[in-house]
Simulated assay, not measured.
Amino acid sequence: MTTTSSPRIVVLAGGLSHERDVSLRSGRRVADALRSVGVDVSVHDVDSDLVPALVQLQPDLVWPLLHGTSGEDGSVRDVVQMLGLRLLGAGPRESRVAWSKPIAKTVVSRAGLSTPDFVTLPQSLFRELGARHVLDVIVARLGLPLVIKPSRGGSALGVTLVTSPDDLPQAMVDCFAYSDTALVETAVVGTEVAVSVVDIGDGPFALPPVEIVTDGPYDYDARYNPGRTEYFAPARLSQDVSRSVIGAALAAHRALGLEGISRTDLIVDEAGTVWFLEVNVAPGMTETSLLPQAAEAAGLSLGALYRSMVDAALSR
């Protein structure tokens, strides 16, 4: 859908999380794309000048492109709504649920999606019970290999694939550098796929799945430095499996009550089972990010797509 007048948009980018640089790159890319189709856009950091700026500007819409805690835990979105301004994307409560990987996995599993078996363990528990005893129980219960990741956060920061019990202690230390709670889940071997969901006025729909192939872990460096990772958009999946991953992403989007935009990360195992890993309510929009690649694979102009998303958010 389109409108004849140009809305005033504020893109929020930056913040103080570990993912600040990625957020700034995402914000600039989206702002440039919207300006290319004649939209009035300004980009603002999350600092002491933000609230006065929003009060003065009174934009028609605020688009949070903040990665990490304040941008995805619902807090900044709460402030935007308390100022009486509209948001593009998930509301504060829905964002908080999706931001917590263990809660999101629980919600989507109740909706019928498969997700790897997992436990959530705070750092304090290791101190109280003894790290070695807890780690032994984890291996006995979940087996190996395991994925250790912060219970909240993105860009694969603090994430480790563990194939040997000897590597578990260091993996936990790396995880706790980014969060005081670790999500430990059974590692699923298969094809990594990301499915982006957007809404341009007729309800959520999925962009083509993107397949991720990397030599080694799909870590921060592999995500944001060109050359480390090979992407296939659309993913090299059979029609049936492609429909399954799209269905899983849409089901997760709806089960979590999301709006406007999301990206769901999945793995397809050798049997064709689709496993939900996590969902992102503020997916990256950099030159190597998955949503822009999916849009281009669908033959969509990024400027036109983002403008339609803006118009849809304003019409809700």
Rank of each mutant, 00 (worst) to 15 (best):
D166M: 14
A249I: 14
P208E: 01
L83W: 11
A90V: 06
F118G: 01
H44K: 13
G247F: 09
D219L: 01
L12F: 01
E72P: 01
V245T: 11
V193P: 05
V268M: 07
A298D: 11
D199F: 07
S244F: 06
T264A: 11
A298E: 07
P102K: 10
L250Q: 00
A255I: 14
D45Q: 04
V197A: 11
T229R: 07
P7M: 14
V30N: 07
S238T: 14
P283Q: 14
S100R: 10
S124K: 10
V51L: 14
A252G: 03
V80T: 12
E287N: 08
R29F: 03
R254W: 00
P64N: 02
M1G: 15
S155H: 10
S289T: 03
P92A: 12
Q56D: 15
V41R: 01
G143H: 04
L146H: 01
V159M: 11
A131H: 13
G260K: 01
S17L: 05
T288A: 03
T286G: 08
R25C: 07
A298R: 04
F176E: 00
V188I: 15
I103Q: 13
D167Y: 06
L300Y: 09
G14F: 14
L314E: 05
I103F: 05
S70C: 09
G257I: 07
T163N: 03
S164Q: 11
P64R: 10
E185T: 12
E211Y: 06
P150N: 12
V80N: 12
K149Y: 02
L277A: 08
L305F: 03
D166I: 15
T181L: 12
G112H: 04
V281R: 10
E270S: 15
V195N: 06
V159Y: 12
Q239A: 15
R110L: 15
V139W: 13
A235V: 01
A31M: 01
V10G: 05
T4M: 02
V159C: 11
P52W: 10
Q58V: 13
S100E: 08
G216K: 08
A248D: 03
D174K: 14
V62F: 01
S244P: 05
V76D: 02
T163D: 07
Q58S: 15
V193Y: 06
R93N: 06
D219R: 08
G190K: 02
A313H: 02
R29M: 15
S48W: 08
G303K: 08
